[in-house]
Design a protein around this nucleic acid. Structure first.
Length: 511
RNA sequence: GGUCCGUUCGUCUAGGGGUUAGGACGCAAGAUUCUCAUUCUUGUAACACGAGUUCGAUUCUCGUACGGACUACCA
């Protein structure tokens, strides 16, 4: 490790919503920064105007905020290296590109894209690979092959060249990756990549290296898809004379589809029934709408915890971590090398765990919002009681909401199977008697109602279950649910006896 | 096709030259319970294959297979 202050960046490109993989990359960068008391920067890599999606940048910022990943420096907060949006830095890139060309480390290329595509297709047909490099650059339309006057003439004629990096002919490049160890490449198999496009914008490769250097980035933590361009980036540091200050690199494993082959894509979510985005996102161009973890009822802590354990583990058996705990435990050395299949079930389990830990008041507030949306309004105290009763069986506040319906709406219909099983000929009479018994109980709380009913049932010589099942059916309309004595306490004596009467009336007339 | 990366229960993973290969999710069974869940207990299930190194390989090396990424004037 070098002794520089730890500075890491998350550098998404605003081409759409940030998906799971992107959020995890951001998270690992954030955790690494926190672990080492360093800085976490947000840089927006918007050098491709063609793929720019309006709103994407705002989405990314909002998503990081929801996850609790606070940005120390960069887009949306500013800092000493502003601007942090690459489209606003093109002059900087142009200067370095000019320098590389002047020093003979890069050159101008005029090849029409169509022609190169043709060459690639030809090569592929032969079972070959077309590499724009040392072996053939002399026979292509560039400033290395063409006479100086011709280059000048093309420029005068208004042709817009691209700038390509001059890749060494045959050199073994040995690089260190924090997660993978040593990786080796031979430059003879690498392309003379475009550094600067004809439209006046740099490509990712150049902008990335220049900015990481200028912004004093100490560690580049990014997805595995960048591993193949790692040698190019290392060579760029060398060409620019920044080799000794080159950041350390860590390439993160990819997140794979829950089932089937390949990496997780945004299509999978809607197809397999789980969100791939932290928050809801509507594509402004296509109008397509995507679900989000936030709207699906995930707590950000649970979402982040789940993500952290996808490809990383603490080496202990602890699974539940707050962001703070993660910040203390995280290390790149414990990141896995292989891709991790995403599991929606495990994600749900994490949320279940976090929901159990939430104060009932917090859950009640969430429940109140859901109820309000459908026009139901209740005392907070009542909602708190309902949440306390229902939380342990729920993964989401939505589950509580669904399970609590009968508190707000008396049964319209009675579960058919449950009725067949539990509503016997003698049931109406028994429940009638039960209703009269309950009338007398004051206060109407479980510690009073339960012993009374038990005593009465014992006296009757019938099973408790027999009575309770029918009782439950009459009160909730369902054959299952939480402890009935708790339910009727919340409902109150009046509502309880009313529902009993209604059930006796309606169910008896049907049989 | 080429280059690079990877491969421990179905999934996420621990481990590491000699272990009953550990945990979690899921699934199954049992216990508890007025029901259903929850919870608890138990169970289920893995070192891709072939060589080599070694007294010994899941662990090290090589090969094969499989998976993945990259192969744009996208990032």
């Amino acid at each position: 490790m070098n002794n520089k202050r730890v500075r890491v960046r998350f550098a998404p490109s605003p081409t759409g919503a940030l998906h799971l993989g992107g959020v995890r990359t951001a998270l690992f960068n954030y955790l690494f920064a926190r672990r080492h008391g360093g800085d976490f920067l947000l840089r927006v890599e918007d050098t491709d105007q063609g793929r720019f999606v309006p709103g994407a940048e705002e989405y990314i910022i909002e998503a990081l905020k929801w996850c609790g990943l606070t940005i120390d420096e960069g887009v949306s907060v500013g800092g000493p290296h502003a601007p942090y949006r690459q489209s606003e830095r093109s002059e900087i890139y142009r200067q370095f590109t000019t320098r590389l060309v002047a020093e003979g480390r890069a050159y101008l290329a005029f090849d029409p894209p169509g022609e190169l595509n043709e060459r690639r297709a030809e090569a592929e047909a032969r079972g070959d690979a077309f590499i724009y490099g040392a072996k053939n650059r002399d026979s292509l339309r560039n400033s290395l092959a063409l006479p100086a006057e011709e280059v000048e003439r093309l420029l005068q004629a208004g042709e817009k060249p691209v700038i390509r990096f001059k890749m060494p002919a045959d050199e073994e490049i040995i690089l260190q990756d924090i997660i993978r160890g040593e990786v080796r490449f031979n430059t003879s198999l690498l392309d003379d990549k475009v550094l600067f496009k004809a439209d006046g914008m740099p490509t990712y490769h150049l902008a990335n290296v220049v900015d990481d250097h200028l912004m004093e980035i100490s560690h580049v933590i990014r997805g595995e898809e960048w591993l193949p361009s790692f040698p190019l980036h290392a060579l760029l540091y060398r060409a620019l004379g920044w080799e000794k200050n080159m950041p350390l690199f860590a390439h993160l494993p990819l997140i794979l589809k829950p089932v089937g082959n390949g990496k997780l894509s945004k299509r999978d979510g809607n197809k397999m029934g789980f969100p791939v985005f932290p928050m809801e996102f509507t594509d402004p161009v296509t109008g397509e709408k995507w679900r989000g973890y936030k709207e699906d009822g995930y707590f950000p802590e649970a979402f982040v915890n789940m993500l952290a354990l996808l490809g990383w583990n603490p080496g202990t058996e602890q699974e539940l971590f707050s962001l703070q705990e993660l910040s203390e435990a995280f290390s790149l050395e414990r990141v896995n090398r292989s891709g991790a299949r995403f599991s929606p079930e495990k994600a749900r389990w994490f949320n279940h765990k976090y929901l159990q830990e939430k104060p009932d008041e917090v859950l009640a507030a969430g429940l109140a919002r859901l109820l309000e949306a459908e026009g139901t309004r209740r005392e907070e105290q009542e909602l708190v009681k309902i949440c306390r009763l229902l939380k342990e069986r729920a993964n989401f506040v939505q589950d509580i909401h669904a399970a609590a319906r009968f508190f707000f709406h008396p049964p319209r219909v009675y579960d058919e199977k449950g009725t067949r099983k539990n509503w016997k000929e003698e049931t109406p009479a028994l429940l009638g008697e039960l209703a009269r018994l309950l009338e007398e109980i004051e206060p109407f709380i479980p510690s009073n109602t339960e012993p009374a009913v038990r005593e009465w049932v014992t006296g009757k010589g019938v099973g408790l279950g027999q009575i309770m099942n029918a009782f439950r059916l009459a009160i909730t309309g369902f054959a299952d649910g939480p402890r009935l004595f708790d339910v009727i306490e919340i409902l109150g004596k009046e509502e309880t006896t009313r529902r009993l009467a209604v059930a006796i009336e309606r169910l008896s007339s049907n049989t």
